[in-house]
Design a protein around this nucleic acid. Structure first.
Lengths: 229, 229
DNA sequence: GCAAAAGTGTTCATCATACACCCATGT
DNA sequence: ACATGGGTGTATGATGAACACTTTTGC
Protein backbone atom coordinates (compact mmCIF):
# COMPACT_ATOMS: atom_id res chain seq x y z
CA UNK A 1 0.00 0.00 0.00
CA UNK A 2 1.61 3.25 -1.06
CA UNK A 3 0.72 6.39 0.78
CA UNK A 4 1.31 9.91 -0.21
CA UNK A 5 4.25 10.03 2.09
CA UNK A 6 7.12 9.14 -0.21
CA UNK A 7 8.84 12.26 -1.41
CA UNK A 8 8.04 12.98 -5.01
CA UNK A 9 11.14 13.46 -7.06
CA UNK A 10 9.57 14.38 -10.36
CA UNK A 11 8.13 17.65 -11.49
CA UNK A 12 6.63 18.55 -14.83
CA UNK A 13 5.79 21.50 -16.94
CA UNK A 14 2.09 22.20 -16.94
CA UNK A 15 0.37 24.12 -19.69
CA UNK A 16 -3.14 24.90 -20.79
CA UNK A 17 -4.38 24.53 -24.33
CA UNK A 18 -7.50 26.24 -25.57
CA UNK A 19 -9.96 25.00 -28.11
CA UNK A 20 -11.81 28.16 -29.02
CA UNK A 21 -14.91 27.74 -31.13
CA UNK A 22 -17.10 30.23 -32.88
CA UNK A 23 -19.71 30.20 -35.63
CA UNK A 24 -19.09 32.37 -38.68
CA UNK A 25 -21.33 32.24 -41.74
CA UNK A 26 -23.25 29.29 -40.34
CA UNK A 27 -20.00 27.38 -40.07
CA UNK A 28 -18.24 26.06 -36.99
CA UNK A 29 -14.68 27.32 -36.72
CA UNK A 30 -11.79 26.81 -34.37
CA UNK A 31 -9.00 29.22 -33.56
CA UNK A 32 -5.55 28.07 -34.68
CA UNK A 33 -2.23 29.82 -34.44
CA UNK A 34 0.92 29.20 -36.39
CA UNK A 35 4.01 28.25 -34.45
CA UNK A 36 7.17 30.25 -34.87
CA UNK A 37 10.23 29.08 -36.66
CA UNK A 38 12.91 29.29 -34.06
CA UNK A 39 15.87 27.33 -32.79
CA UNK A 40 14.85 24.55 -30.44
CA UNK A 41 11.15 24.97 -31.03
CA UNK A 42 9.43 21.80 -32.16
CA UNK A 43 6.82 21.83 -34.92
CA UNK A 44 8.10 25.08 -36.47
CA UNK A 45 5.66 26.79 -38.79
CA UNK A 46 2.93 24.30 -37.97
CA UNK A 47 -0.58 25.17 -36.88
CA UNK A 48 -1.50 24.59 -33.27
CA UNK A 49 -4.09 25.32 -30.62
CA UNK A 50 -3.46 28.48 -28.62
CA UNK A 51 -2.12 27.93 -25.14
CA UNK A 52 0.65 28.63 -22.72
CA UNK A 53 2.08 27.53 -19.44
CA UNK A 54 0.69 27.86 -16.01
CA UNK A 55 2.67 30.28 -13.86
CA UNK A 56 3.88 29.56 -10.41
CA UNK A 57 1.22 30.44 -7.89
CA UNK A 58 -1.42 30.66 -10.58
CA UNK A 59 -4.51 28.44 -10.44
CA UNK A 60 -4.80 26.34 -13.57
CA UNK A 61 -8.23 27.73 -14.22
CA UNK A 62 -6.85 31.26 -13.88
CA UNK A 63 -4.18 30.40 -16.42
CA UNK A 64 -6.88 29.28 -18.83
CA UNK A 65 -8.74 32.56 -18.27
CA UNK A 66 -5.58 34.55 -18.79
CA UNK A 67 -4.62 32.75 -21.97
CA UNK A 68 -8.12 33.13 -23.33
CA UNK A 69 -8.03 36.87 -22.79
CA UNK A 70 -4.54 37.15 -24.25
CA UNK A 71 -5.28 35.09 -27.31
CA UNK A 72 -8.68 36.46 -28.16
CA UNK A 73 -8.50 40.12 -27.11
CA UNK A 74 -11.84 39.54 -25.41
CA UNK A 75 -12.97 40.12 -21.89
CA UNK A 76 -13.51 36.97 -19.94
CA UNK A 77 -17.19 37.57 -19.24
CA UNK A 78 -18.00 37.37 -22.91
CA UNK A 79 -16.91 33.76 -23.37
CA UNK A 80 -17.87 30.38 -22.09
CA UNK A 81 -14.97 28.36 -20.71
CA UNK A 82 -14.96 24.77 -19.49
CA UNK A 83 -12.26 22.27 -18.63
CA UNK A 84 -12.15 19.50 -21.21
CA UNK A 85 -9.51 16.89 -20.45
CA UNK A 86 -5.91 16.52 -19.38
CA UNK A 87 -3.39 15.10 -21.79
CA UNK A 88 -0.43 13.53 -20.09
CA UNK A 89 1.38 11.13 -22.36
CA UNK A 90 5.04 11.16 -21.41
CA UNK A 91 6.16 11.77 -24.98
CA UNK A 92 3.63 14.34 -26.07
CA UNK A 93 6.21 17.13 -26.06
CA UNK A 94 9.54 16.19 -27.63
CA UNK A 95 11.48 18.75 -25.58
CA UNK A 96 10.49 17.90 -22.06
CA UNK A 97 7.85 16.31 -19.93
CA UNK A 98 4.71 18.37 -20.30
CA UNK A 99 1.17 17.96 -19.11
CA UNK A 100 -1.55 19.90 -20.86
CA UNK A 101 -4.89 20.73 -19.33
CA UNK A 102 -7.23 21.49 -22.21
CA UNK A 103 -10.14 23.91 -21.93
CA UNK A 104 -12.72 24.62 -24.53
CA UNK A 105 -14.13 28.09 -25.04
CA UNK A 106 -17.01 29.54 -27.01
CA UNK A 107 -16.91 32.98 -28.60
CA UNK A 108 -20.21 34.53 -29.62
CA UNK A 109 -20.62 35.01 -33.32
CA UNK A 110 -20.59 38.78 -33.23
CA UNK A 111 -17.25 38.98 -31.43
CA UNK A 112 -15.37 36.60 -33.67
CA UNK A 113 -13.91 39.36 -35.82
CA UNK A 114 -12.55 41.17 -32.77
CA UNK A 115 -10.45 38.12 -32.01
CA UNK A 116 -8.32 38.54 -35.08
CA UNK A 117 -8.10 42.34 -34.86
CA UNK A 118 -4.52 43.45 -35.28
CA UNK A 119 -3.30 39.94 -36.04
CA UNK A 120 -1.66 38.70 -39.16
CA UNK A 121 -3.70 36.06 -40.95
CA UNK A 122 -0.56 34.01 -41.43
CA UNK A 123 -0.26 33.79 -37.63
CA UNK A 124 -3.76 33.22 -36.38
CA UNK A 125 -6.97 32.16 -38.09
CA UNK A 126 -10.48 30.90 -37.62
CA UNK A 127 -10.43 27.55 -39.38
CA UNK A 128 -13.54 25.80 -40.57
CA UNK A 129 -13.63 22.20 -39.45
CA UNK A 130 -14.10 21.27 -43.08
CA UNK A 131 -10.82 22.98 -44.01
CA UNK A 132 -8.78 21.34 -41.30
CA UNK A 133 -6.95 19.06 -43.71
CA UNK A 134 -5.23 22.12 -45.18
CA UNK A 135 -3.76 22.88 -41.74
CA UNK A 136 -2.74 19.35 -40.89
CA UNK A 137 -0.83 17.94 -39.31
CA UNK A 138 -1.31 20.03 -36.22
CA UNK A 139 1.53 20.38 -33.72
CA UNK A 140 1.87 17.96 -30.80
CA UNK A 141 -1.26 15.89 -30.11
CA UNK A 142 -3.49 18.84 -30.91
CA UNK A 143 -5.54 16.89 -33.39
CA UNK A 144 -6.52 14.44 -30.70
CA UNK A 145 -7.33 17.31 -28.35
CA UNK A 146 -9.42 19.04 -30.98
CA UNK A 147 -11.36 15.88 -31.73
CA UNK A 148 -12.19 15.44 -28.09
CA UNK A 149 -13.41 19.02 -27.92
CA UNK A 150 -15.63 18.58 -30.96
CA UNK A 151 -17.15 15.46 -29.43
CA UNK A 152 -17.87 17.31 -26.22
CA UNK A 153 -19.36 20.31 -27.98
CA UNK A 154 -21.62 18.14 -30.15
CA UNK A 155 -22.58 16.02 -27.19
CA UNK A 156 -23.60 19.04 -25.13
CA UNK A 157 -25.31 21.22 -27.69
CA UNK A 158 -28.72 19.52 -27.51
CA UNK A 159 -28.70 19.05 -23.74
CA UNK A 160 -27.41 22.33 -22.40
CA UNK A 161 -27.56 26.02 -23.08
CA UNK A 162 -24.14 26.41 -24.64
CA UNK A 163 -25.62 27.34 -28.02
CA UNK A 164 -26.42 30.73 -26.49
CA UNK A 165 -22.71 31.29 -25.96
CA UNK A 166 -22.11 30.95 -29.68
CA UNK A 167 -24.99 32.96 -31.09
CA UNK A 168 -25.21 36.77 -31.05
CA UNK A 169 -26.65 38.40 -27.91
CA UNK A 170 -29.99 38.79 -29.64
CA UNK A 171 -31.06 36.37 -32.30
CA UNK A 172 -33.92 35.16 -34.42
CA UNK A 173 -35.23 31.62 -34.37
CA UNK A 174 -33.48 30.89 -37.65
CA UNK A 175 -30.19 32.31 -36.40
CA UNK A 176 -30.22 30.09 -33.36
CA UNK A 177 -31.15 27.12 -35.47
CA UNK A 178 -28.25 27.85 -37.75
CA UNK A 179 -25.87 27.66 -34.77
CA UNK A 180 -27.21 24.23 -33.89
CA UNK A 181 -26.80 23.16 -37.48
CA UNK A 182 -23.26 24.46 -37.68
CA UNK A 183 -22.26 22.57 -34.56
CA UNK A 184 -23.99 19.33 -35.45
CA UNK A 185 -23.21 19.55 -39.13
CA UNK A 186 -26.73 18.50 -40.04
CA UNK A 187 -30.08 20.17 -40.62
CA UNK A 188 -32.80 20.68 -38.03
CA UNK A 189 -36.41 20.73 -39.14
CA UNK A 190 -37.64 24.34 -38.84
CA UNK A 191 -41.05 23.42 -37.47
CA UNK A 192 -39.71 21.05 -34.85
CA UNK A 193 -37.05 23.56 -33.91
CA UNK A 194 -39.72 26.25 -33.58
CA UNK A 195 -41.70 24.14 -31.17
CA UNK A 196 -38.60 23.58 -29.09
CA UNK A 197 -37.80 27.28 -29.25
CA UNK A 198 -41.29 28.27 -28.16
CA UNK A 199 -41.08 25.84 -25.29
CA UNK A 200 -37.98 27.67 -24.08
CA UNK A 201 -39.83 30.97 -24.40
CA UNK A 202 -42.72 29.55 -22.38
CA UNK A 203 -40.23 28.37 -19.74
CA UNK A 204 -38.66 31.81 -19.56
CA UNK A 205 -35.31 30.55 -20.80
CA UNK A 206 -35.60 32.74 -23.88
CA UNK A 207 -37.01 36.24 -23.70
CA UNK A 208 -38.60 38.23 -26.51
CA UNK A 209 -36.42 41.25 -27.30
CA UNK A 210 -37.24 44.59 -28.83
CA UNK A 211 -37.05 45.16 -32.57
CA UNK A 212 -37.03 42.89 -35.57
CA UNK A 213 -34.27 41.54 -37.76
CA UNK A 214 -34.59 43.08 -41.22
CA UNK A 215 -33.19 41.09 -44.11
CA UNK A 216 -33.95 40.62 -47.78
CA UNK A 217 -37.19 38.83 -47.04
CA UNK A 218 -39.70 39.02 -44.26
CA UNK A 219 -38.37 40.56 -41.08
CA UNK A 220 -38.10 38.36 -38.01
CA UNK A 221 -38.63 38.66 -34.27
CA UNK A 222 -35.53 38.78 -32.13
CA UNK A 223 -34.99 37.16 -28.77
CA UNK A 224 -32.39 37.00 -26.04
CA UNK A 225 -31.23 34.34 -23.63
CA UNK A 226 -32.03 34.67 -19.96
CA UNK A 227 -28.73 34.16 -18.17
CA UNK A 228 -28.50 32.75 -14.65
CA UNK A 229 -32.21 32.14 -14.17
CA UNK B 1 -0.16 37.60 -28.51
CA UNK B 2 1.87 35.11 -26.58
CA UNK B 3 3.21 32.07 -28.35
CA UNK B 4 4.55 28.91 -26.92
CA UNK B 5 8.06 30.17 -27.45
CA UNK B 6 8.84 31.74 -24.10
CA UNK B 7 10.82 29.38 -21.93
CA UNK B 8 8.75 27.99 -19.13
CA UNK B 9 10.38 28.48 -15.77
CA UNK B 10 7.88 26.73 -13.60
CA UNK B 11 7.40 23.05 -13.00
CA UNK B 12 4.94 21.33 -10.71
CA UNK B 13 4.36 18.07 -8.97
CA UNK B 14 1.70 16.04 -10.70
CA UNK B 15 -0.28 13.36 -8.94
CA UNK B 16 -3.29 11.22 -9.60
CA UNK B 17 -6.13 10.74 -7.17
CA UNK B 18 -8.56 7.88 -7.42
CA UNK B 19 -12.20 7.84 -6.54
CA UNK B 20 -12.94 4.14 -6.31
CA UNK B 21 -16.58 3.17 -6.03
CA UNK B 22 -18.25 -0.11 -5.31
CA UNK B 23 -21.65 -1.31 -4.20
CA UNK B 24 -21.87 -3.36 -1.03
CA UNK B 25 -25.18 -4.38 0.51
CA UNK B 26 -27.10 -2.23 -1.93
CA UNK B 27 -25.11 0.77 -0.80
CA UNK B 28 -22.68 2.94 -2.74
CA UNK B 29 -19.27 3.11 -1.11
CA UNK B 30 -16.03 4.87 -1.81
CA UNK B 31 -12.53 3.77 -0.89
CA UNK B 32 -10.78 6.02 1.63
CA UNK B 33 -7.38 5.67 3.22
CA UNK B 34 -6.08 7.23 6.37
CA UNK B 35 -3.04 9.44 6.08
CA UNK B 36 -0.01 8.74 8.20
CA UNK B 37 1.11 10.79 11.11
CA UNK B 38 4.58 11.82 10.15
CA UNK B 39 6.80 14.85 10.29
CA UNK B 40 6.09 17.28 7.49
CA UNK B 41 3.03 15.46 6.25
CA UNK B 42 -0.06 17.66 6.07
CA UNK B 43 -3.43 16.37 7.21
CA UNK B 44 -1.98 13.69 9.50
CA UNK B 45 -4.41 11.00 10.50
CA UNK B 46 -7.10 12.32 8.22
CA UNK B 47 -9.01 10.32 5.65
CA UNK B 48 -8.20 10.87 2.00
CA UNK B 49 -8.67 9.50 -1.47
CA UNK B 50 -6.02 7.03 -2.57
CA UNK B 51 -3.46 8.36 -5.00
CA UNK B 52 0.16 9.02 -5.70
CA UNK B 53 2.49 10.85 -7.98
CA UNK B 54 3.17 10.41 -11.60
CA UNK B 55 6.68 9.13 -12.27
CA UNK B 56 9.04 10.61 -14.76
CA UNK B 57 8.49 9.03 -18.14
CA UNK B 58 5.16 7.58 -17.07
CA UNK B 59 1.97 8.47 -18.90
CA UNK B 60 -0.57 9.98 -16.53
CA UNK B 61 -3.08 7.33 -17.47
CA UNK B 62 -0.48 4.64 -16.74
CA UNK B 63 0.06 6.18 -13.33
CA UNK B 64 -3.66 5.97 -12.66
CA UNK B 65 -3.64 2.32 -13.68
CA UNK B 66 -0.65 1.61 -11.51
CA UNK B 67 -2.12 3.31 -8.47
CA UNK B 68 -5.40 1.51 -8.93
CA UNK B 69 -3.66 -1.84 -8.97
CA UNK B 70 -1.51 -0.94 -5.98
CA UNK B 71 -4.35 0.38 -3.89
CA UNK B 72 -6.96 -2.25 -4.65
CA UNK B 73 -4.95 -5.46 -5.10
CA UNK B 74 -6.98 -6.00 -8.25
CA UNK B 75 -5.92 -6.61 -11.79
CA UNK B 76 -6.59 -3.71 -14.09
CA UNK B 77 -8.91 -5.59 -16.40
CA UNK B 78 -11.43 -6.06 -13.63
CA UNK B 79 -12.13 -2.37 -13.09
CA UNK B 80 -13.52 0.51 -15.04
CA UNK B 81 -11.31 3.60 -15.03
CA UNK B 82 -12.05 7.03 -16.48
CA UNK B 83 -10.44 10.43 -16.18
CA UNK B 84 -12.63 12.77 -14.16
CA UNK B 85 -11.17 16.23 -13.82
CA UNK B 86 -7.95 18.05 -13.04
CA UNK B 87 -7.65 20.04 -9.86
CA UNK B 88 -5.07 22.78 -10.07
CA UNK B 89 -5.65 25.43 -7.44
CA UNK B 90 -2.28 26.87 -6.52
CA UNK B 91 -2.90 26.39 -2.80
CA UNK B 92 -4.47 22.94 -2.82
CA UNK B 93 -1.38 21.34 -1.29
CA UNK B 94 0.15 23.30 1.60
CA UNK B 95 3.63 21.85 1.02
CA UNK B 96 4.23 22.60 -2.61
CA UNK B 97 2.59 23.32 -5.89
CA UNK B 98 0.71 20.22 -6.90
CA UNK B 99 -1.68 19.39 -9.69
CA UNK B 100 -3.95 16.41 -9.28
CA UNK B 101 -5.53 14.55 -12.14
CA UNK B 102 -8.49 12.68 -10.70
CA UNK B 103 -9.74 9.39 -12.10
CA UNK B 104 -12.78 7.51 -11.02
CA UNK B 105 -12.86 3.73 -10.90
CA UNK B 106 -15.55 1.13 -10.43
CA UNK B 107 -14.98 -2.16 -8.64
CA UNK B 108 -17.52 -4.93 -9.20
CA UNK B 109 -19.48 -5.87 -6.13
CA UNK B 110 -18.01 -9.35 -5.80
CA UNK B 111 -14.41 -8.12 -5.72
CA UNK B 112 -14.90 -5.42 -3.12
CA UNK B 113 -13.76 -7.63 -0.27
CA UNK B 114 -10.52 -8.49 -2.06
CA UNK B 115 -9.62 -4.84 -2.02
CA UNK B 116 -9.29 -4.72 1.74
CA UNK B 117 -7.60 -8.10 2.03
CA UNK B 118 -4.56 -7.85 4.27
CA UNK B 119 -5.27 -4.22 5.14
CA UNK B 120 -5.93 -2.78 8.51
CA UNK B 121 -9.41 -1.28 8.81
CA UNK B 122 -7.92 1.72 10.54
CA UNK B 123 -5.92 2.42 7.36
CA UNK B 124 -8.30 1.75 4.51
CA UNK B 125 -12.06 1.38 4.33
CA UNK B 126 -15.07 1.29 2.09
CA UNK B 127 -17.12 4.22 3.27
CA UNK B 128 -20.82 4.57 2.61
CA UNK B 129 -21.68 7.96 1.23
CA UNK B 130 -24.17 8.31 4.03
CA UNK B 131 -21.41 7.85 6.62
CA UNK B 132 -19.07 10.38 5.09
CA UNK B 133 -19.65 12.93 7.80
CA UNK B 134 -17.88 10.60 10.24
CA UNK B 135 -14.75 10.78 8.08
CA UNK B 136 -14.84 14.50 7.46
CA UNK B 137 -13.08 16.68 6.87
CA UNK B 138 -11.18 14.87 4.19
CA UNK B 139 -7.60 15.86 3.43
CA UNK B 140 -6.79 18.49 0.81
CA UNK B 141 -9.68 19.30 -1.54
CA UNK B 142 -10.75 15.68 -1.61
CA UNK B 143 -14.30 16.46 -0.67
CA UNK B 144 -14.68 18.61 -3.73
CA UNK B 145 -13.11 15.89 -5.87
CA UNK B 146 -15.40 13.26 -4.42
CA UNK B 147 -18.46 15.38 -5.03
CA UNK B 148 -17.52 15.83 -8.64
CA UNK B 149 -17.05 12.09 -9.00
CA UNK B 150 -20.46 11.38 -7.51
CA UNK B 151 -22.05 13.84 -9.89
CA UNK B 152 -20.36 12.18 -12.83
CA UNK B 153 -21.30 8.69 -11.73
CA UNK B 154 -24.93 9.64 -11.18
CA UNK B 155 -25.03 11.52 -14.44
CA UNK B 156 -23.71 8.56 -16.40
CA UNK B 157 -25.50 5.67 -14.76
CA UNK B 158 -28.72 5.99 -16.77
CA UNK B 159 -27.04 6.78 -20.07
CA UNK B 160 -24.17 4.34 -20.26
CA UNK B 161 -23.28 0.81 -19.34
CA UNK B 162 -21.19 1.58 -16.28
CA UNK B 163 -23.67 -0.15 -13.98
CA UNK B 164 -22.32 -3.43 -15.33
CA UNK B 165 -18.90 -2.52 -13.94
CA UNK B 166 -20.38 -2.33 -10.45
CA UNK B 167 -22.62 -5.37 -10.40
CA UNK B 168 -21.39 -8.98 -10.14
CA UNK B 169 -20.41 -10.75 -13.39
CA UNK B 170 -23.76 -12.51 -13.46
CA UNK B 171 -26.80 -10.88 -11.93
CA UNK B 172 -30.54 -11.00 -11.61
CA UNK B 173 -32.84 -8.22 -12.68
CA UNK B 174 -33.32 -7.19 -9.07
CA UNK B 175 -29.59 -7.19 -8.38
CA UNK B 176 -28.92 -4.88 -11.28
CA UNK B 177 -31.77 -2.66 -10.22
CA UNK B 178 -30.33 -2.48 -6.76
CA UNK B 179 -27.06 -1.16 -8.20
CA UNK B 180 -28.93 1.60 -9.99
CA UNK B 181 -30.76 2.42 -6.79
CA UNK B 182 -27.56 2.47 -4.75
CA UNK B 183 -25.94 4.90 -7.19
CA UNK B 184 -28.93 7.18 -7.59
CA UNK B 185 -30.01 6.92 -3.99
CA UNK B 186 -33.63 6.52 -5.01
CA UNK B 187 -35.97 3.71 -5.98
CA UNK B 188 -36.65 2.49 -9.50
CA UNK B 189 -40.06 1.07 -10.30
CA UNK B 190 -39.62 -2.71 -10.76
CA UNK B 191 -41.97 -2.94 -13.73
CA UNK B 192 -40.43 -0.03 -15.59
CA UNK B 193 -36.98 -1.34 -14.84
CA UNK B 194 -37.95 -4.76 -16.12
CA UNK B 195 -39.10 -3.33 -19.40
CA UNK B 196 -35.83 -1.52 -19.76
CA UNK B 197 -33.95 -4.66 -18.85
CA UNK B 198 -35.82 -6.78 -21.37
CA UNK B 199 -35.11 -4.19 -24.04
CA UNK B 200 -31.40 -4.66 -23.38
CA UNK B 201 -31.83 -8.41 -23.62
CA UNK B 202 -33.64 -7.98 -26.93
CA UNK B 203 -30.79 -5.74 -28.14
CA UNK B 204 -28.23 -8.34 -27.17
CA UNK B 205 -26.63 -6.05 -24.59
CA UNK B 206 -27.58 -8.45 -21.83
CA UNK B 207 -27.36 -12.21 -22.30
CA UNK B 208 -29.27 -14.88 -20.40
CA UNK B 209 -26.85 -16.94 -18.34
CA UNK B 210 -27.04 -20.46 -17.04
CA UNK B 211 -28.52 -21.27 -13.63
CA UNK B 212 -30.80 -19.42 -11.30
CA UNK B 213 -30.17 -17.35 -8.21
CA UNK B 214 -31.53 -19.15 -5.18
CA UNK B 215 -32.52 -17.03 -2.21
CA UNK B 216 -35.04 -17.15 0.59
CA UNK B 217 -37.93 -16.59 -1.79
CA UNK B 218 -38.55 -17.42 -5.40
CA UNK B 219 -35.41 -18.16 -7.38
CA UNK B 220 -34.49 -15.81 -10.21
CA UNK B 221 -32.95 -15.98 -13.66
CA UNK B 222 -29.40 -14.75 -13.99
CA UNK B 223 -27.90 -12.75 -16.82
CA UNK B 224 -24.55 -11.42 -17.93
CA UNK B 225 -23.43 -8.30 -19.76
CA UNK B 226 -22.13 -8.60 -23.27
CA UNK B 227 -18.85 -6.69 -23.30
CA UNK B 228 -17.48 -4.97 -26.39
CA UNK B 229 -20.42 -5.77 -28.63
C1' DG C 1 -49.37 -22.80 4.44
C1' DC C 2 -46.63 -19.05 4.76
C1' DA C 3 -42.97 -15.98 4.13
C1' DA C 4 -40.09 -13.99 0.76
C1' DA C 5 -38.93 -12.36 -3.44
C1' DA C 6 -39.83 -12.63 -8.58
C1' DG C 7 -42.42 -11.42 -12.14
C1' DT C 8 -45.80 -9.06 -14.91
C1' DG C 9 -49.80 -4.85 -18.10
C1' DT C 10 -52.00 -0.72 -18.86
C1' DT C 11 -52.68 4.05 -19.11
C1' DC C 12 -51.15 8.64 -19.76
C1' DA C 13 -48.22 12.52 -20.79
C1' DT C 14 -44.33 14.06 -23.16
C1' DC C 15 -41.30 14.26 -26.81
C1' DA C 16 -38.95 13.49 -31.29
C1' DT C 17 -39.80 12.94 -36.05
C1' DA C 18 -41.66 13.41 -40.54
C1' DC C 19 -43.65 16.27 -43.76
C1' DA C 20 -45.28 21.26 -47.28
C1' DC C 21 -47.48 25.39 -47.76
C1' DC C 22 -48.81 30.30 -47.00
C1' DC C 23 -47.44 34.96 -45.37
C1' DA C 24 -45.13 39.25 -44.79
C1' DT C 25 -41.90 42.29 -46.34
C1' DG C 26 -38.47 44.91 -49.30
C1' DT C 27 -37.18 45.86 -53.82
C1' DA D 1 -45.12 41.41 -59.11
C1' DC D 2 -41.73 38.83 -57.46
C1' DA D 3 -38.09 37.19 -54.78
C1' DT D 4 -36.61 36.26 -50.27
C1' DG D 5 -36.90 34.31 -46.07
C1' DG D 6 -40.24 33.86 -41.93
C1' DG D 7 -43.60 31.43 -39.94
C1' DT D 8 -46.79 27.67 -38.95
C1' DG D 9 -50.09 22.25 -37.79
C1' DT D 10 -50.87 17.49 -37.65
C1' DA D 11 -50.24 12.68 -37.22
C1' DT D 12 -47.41 8.91 -35.63
C1' DG D 13 -44.30 6.25 -32.88
C1' DA D 14 -41.16 5.88 -28.87
C1' DT D 15 -40.21 6.67 -24.29
C1' DG D 16 -40.68 7.50 -19.35
C1' DA D 17 -43.68 7.59 -15.25
C1' DA D 18 -47.29 6.04 -12.40
C1' DC D 19 -49.63 2.39 -10.33
C1' DA D 20 -50.73 -3.29 -7.35
C1' DC D 21 -51.40 -7.92 -7.65
C1' DT D 22 -50.24 -12.87 -8.70
C1' DT D 23 -46.82 -16.61 -8.94
C1' DT D 24 -43.18 -19.38 -7.59
C1' DT D 25 -40.25 -21.32 -4.45
C1' DG D 26 -37.90 -22.77 0.01
C1' DC D 27 -38.83 -23.67 4.46
Amino acid sequence: MSFRSEMPTTTMHVSVDLIVFTVIDADLKVLLIRREQREGEPFPDRWALPGGHVDEGEDIEAAAHRELVEETNLRLGSCYLEQLYTFGKATRDPRRRNVSVAYFALVPSNLSTTVLAGSDASDVQWVSLRDLHAFAPLAFDHHEILNKAIDRLRGRIDYSNIAFDLVTPTFTIAELRSVYEAVKGSAYDPRNFDRRFRRMVADGVILPAAGRRVTAGKSAHVYSFRRNS
